[in-house]
Design a binder for these strands. Sequence first.
DNA 1: GTCCCATCGGACCGACCGGTTCCATCTAAG
DNA 2: CTTAGATGGAACCGGTCGGTCCGATGGGAC
Lengths: 199, 199
Amino acid sequence: MPVPKGSSLDPDRTRAAILHTAEGILYARGLDGVGVAELCAEAGISKETLYRHFGSKEGLIRCVLEARSDRVIRWLAQAAADAGDEPANQLAAVFDALGAWFGEPGFRGCAIVNAATQHHDTPTGTIASRHLGRYLDLFTDIATRAGAAHPAALGRQLLLLLEGAIVVADHLDGPVAAGDAREAALALLHRAASRPADG
Amino acid sequence: MPVPKGSSLDPDRTRAAILHTAEGILYARGLDGVGVAELCAEAGISKETLYRHFGSKEGLIRCVLEARSDRVIRWLAQAAADAGDEPANQLAAVFDALGAWFGEPGFRGCAIVNAATQHHDTPTGTIASRHLGRYLDLFTDIATRAGAAHPAALGRQLLLLLEGAIVVADHLDGPVAAGDAREAALALLHRAASRPADG
DNA sequence: GTCCCATCGGACCGACCGGTTCCATCTAAG
DNA sequence: CTTAGATGGAACCGGTCGGTCCGATGGGAC
């Protein structure tokens, strides 16, 4: 049996349900905008269960954010992979995927960056750094395969466009930002690839 | 007399002192990370004085953010103006100024965007929109004077670089982001100016 | 001197917070 | 059946929150 101890249902299932419910509410209302009591009520569990699984509200937040980071990175990497082998097409696909996300109701920016902004001194900040680093890996890989002269620098610039697009989409003009970012990203990629020996 | 009623010192002076102290603490610790009592203690005033001047904590936050937005925009516009008339030089100067800011101890991202992230449903969100719009005006002006084919689109792309740089500097690599953004911004400007009839 | 009023210091309020504990209950393993 | 562990429900804790109110002080304006 994969279930180590007996219980009414499945502890792993319970844990996953808590994470899923908490992710939505914490994203929509902010880390400090919702109390543990409400999270438990929405998830249909007791506070004792939550504290047995996650130890503290901060522990729950950490697990939620790590799961979210994994999912977001996998989603963008898949969007790139689905676009074929051409780096430019992959880059365009990434920003197209972002545009679709920006247009969804309830879009409120990047949950991980938002969380780090709200609790900047906690381990949450570390999760955000790792998250941005994973974006960077994705972009640097694309830049490298595109033959950019300085793939690391181009990767960082593409990351600026991604993060800028998220912020601007959240606070100013929604999905429009994704189109602007896409166009700028392709321009930077083309420039770097057409000058492989020099900037 | 500019002072309407008698008081121990000067109500306007008191108000400005509250704003100054509150701005620093709210920026460093977050909107929900500090209570009204502590803000009053640090500013050397009583809660009654704070509530008479600002009505509520939200009212205080609103005044702090509006003052901050004014100051930041004026600071960047001045940096551009000090760089002469050449649009490319002005753009470079803006990102150089950002780089200096990113390196300052206590840098924590954009106070206005951070605030909107923390209290997204309050009027704070409106302040953030206006703030980004003012950046946009600055960049669109530079793009127009540079002879860009689509100055509005270029302005929005430059805004993406600025906001992205702030986020990345805050959560990943500090002042490096400003240099990357500067280089990308100049590349986008050059591209748009050298193709004034077509993208 | 006499008012006026901004101010301070602090008591006070109700609400909510994160977190702990106890207990009855249910389920699955043996 | 017995037993052990996971659970829900709820009471409870100390602390903090934003906000109000009151008494005392002290400096202009007249």
